[in-house]
Simulated scan of single mutants.
Amino acid sequence: MDTPMTTTTLSRAAATPTARVRIADDRAMLKAAAELTRDLNAPRPAVYWADFLGSVAIGYAGLAVAIAATPLWLTIVAGVVAMFALYRGMSFIHELTHVKHASLPHFRLGYNIFIGVPMLVPSFMYEGVHNLHHARTRYGTSDDPEYLPLALMKPWSLPVFVLVAALAPFALIFRYGVLSPLSLLSPSLRRIVVERFSALAINPQFRRRLPEGDFRRQWIAIETACAVWAMSLIALVATGTLPLRAFAIMMAVASGVAVINQLRTLVAHLWENEGEVMTVTAQYLDSVNVPPPATLPALWAPVGLRYHALHHLLPGVPYHALGEAHRRLSAVLDRESPYYKANYVGMPGLIAKIARSTMLPR
Rank of each mutant, 00 (worst) to 15 (best):
H106Q: 12
G79M: 02
P291L: 02
M347V: 14
T75D: 03
L310K: 04
P204Q: 02
H326Q: 12
V332Q: 14
L242V: 05
A78W: 04
P169K: 04
R208M: 10
A355T: 13
L333R: 06
A85C: 11
A68G: 10
I260D: 03
R196V: 03
D334T: 12
I202V: 15
P297E: 02
A325Q: 09
L158D: 11
P118M: 04
W300C: 04
E274K: 08
D25K: 12
I93E: 08
I354L: 13
V280K: 15
T265I: 04
S337G: 12
W219L: 01
I113T: 14
S232Q: 06
L305F: 04
W229H: 12
T70A: 14
F161I: 03
H311P: 01
N41H: 15
L296Y: 10
T265P: 00
T241K: 10
I351L: 15
A246V: 01
P318I: 08
N112T: 00
W219Y: 14
A15T: 04
A19F: 00
I234P: 07
L167H: 09
V129M: 06
R20L: 00
L200N: 09
S330D: 07
M347F: 13
I67G: 02
V345C: 00
A352Q: 09
V121C: 14
G89N: 02
V164T: 13
L236T: 01
E223M: 11
D334K: 11
R44S: 15
R328E: 01
M125W: 01
R327E: 11
L233H: 03
H308F: 06
A24T: 08
